[in-house]
Design a binder for these strands. Structure first.
Lengths: 228, 228
DNA sequence: CGTACCTTTGACATTTCTCAAGTCCCGTGG
DNA sequence: CCACGGGACTTGAGAAATGTCAAAGGTACG
């Protein structure tokens, strides 16, 4: 079980990390193929806006390299980051005609861009592409539902540890994470404030669940994944 | 703005309620047609399990009447309710072969059931059906992202009020809600505990944002939606 | 009309947030 | 090479929100 100080009244299991790539993801990836054939490439610097809430949702993106965050704001300045997108992720495909969230570069990044109607037309011709699109939506839904559990029912230590593990998995480096985003980004993704994220990381370090090799580099210790 | 006692340091806008049905939802509904033609009907009593996490995901459901909750559990007994499904909602279509959440009846209900492969085969033949399926997934994703904001960044009063407004909209009764689920269900959906939900409802009543006409019936007062 | 369950309330504990200072790191320019 | 500045990160102390435990009301249904 988690060795870190999660409220003492209950035995709390480690949360399952997101699986990436999904076991049943078909290879070679028709989405990658389509973007490689058809997309233009754009570059963005950190904090550049890729698109804003309410913009026309007429383009679809795929990350070549770098990291993108998807977020929503309230008028009083609260921000919720729904998802981070990494190399290989598609994002920005929506059913409605307007964006329901904005997207911003976290790190310098290159994005492939295609027209939404172009992608949908190709999917109509190519059932492998259509099924990859559907698979991608479902994967996204599952990640968001995992996130929902985290925000609704997990304490700060669980949220942070789970995030670090998921990010490590996603980046393909199971035992070390080079965290690409700021503490503030982590906080707005995890529904915490920046000081709580920082304190929680310190606490996880003190309890031996992680080791810090610089503020943006964390080594995950093995026993985090164990269940008692 | 919200008149209810949300932390006093900031001006917090009312959260937008989910739109239902979505403005661009095509009519007549090809999904409804397909289920009406092809589905068997099953009945469930409150708390009956429709399917469990890890079950084979080989059936797809549509609510005829009643309410269904979709939930995930941890070993230590925490529960997160992702979504409630009402009359007309499809649920249970997944990309993977296993359920990632369980579904349970909240009220007595009747559900239409079809085989997953049957639905997908029909969608391959009928592009209107395919597009309705995609639309439904996207709508679900948007609702979940709204929920994500609520759990990550909204205080108890905002969560409860937003939930009541959304439920009223969803049930087609904009000013009165007949809440179909228990306080515990609300709590597990909103990431609160049952006592906090109860206290928050009392507080909203005291502040005039709602009126109670029985524990399960709430009248929403107009000025909840106003922005100062 | 009694019983079981759901809801509300109270008192107190815990977690997380807020505000205010540090500290660290890194690039820049002397 | 080293001082400097600025941003990011960390830490502390106290406040606020939410959770926990316990018990009292309500309500529905046999």
């Amino acid at each position: 079980m988690l060795n870190v100080s999660i409220p003492s009244n209950a035995t709390r299991p480690a949360l399952p990390a997101w699986r990436w790539p999904p076991a049943d993801c078909p290879r070679p990836d028709p989405l990658a193929g389509f973007f490689d054939r058809s997309a233009a490439v754009m570059r963005f610097q950190p904090n550049d806006e890729v698109f804003a809430e309410e913009d026309a949702a007429d383009a679809v993106y795929r990350v070549v390299d770098g990291v993108v965050r998807q977020c929503r704001f309230t008028e009083d300045g609260r921000r919720q980051i729904g998802e981070f997108h990494y190399a290989g992720d598609m994002f920005g495909l929506e059913a409605g005609r307007r964006r329901t969230a904005s997207a911003e570069a976290v790190t310098p990044c290159r994005l492939q861009v295609v027209g939404r109607s172009q992608l949908l037309a190709a999917a109509r011709e190519d059932s492998a592409l259509a099924s990859a699109l559907w698979q991608a939506s479902c994967d996204e839904l599952h990640r968001v539902q995992e996130q929902l559990f985290l925000l609704g029912r997990a304490c700060a230590a669980e949220r942070v540890l789970s995030f670090l593990q998921a990010t490590a998995e996603r980046l393909g480096t199971p035992s070390v994470v080079d965290i690409p985003m700021s503490r503030q980004d982590m906080a707005d993704h995890l529904g915490l404030n920046i000081e709580t994220v920082s304190r929680t990381i310190t606490q996880l370090r003190n309890e031996g669940a992680i080791r810090l090799e610089g503020a943006r580099r964390v080594r995950l210790c093995e026993d985090d994944l164990m269940v008692a």
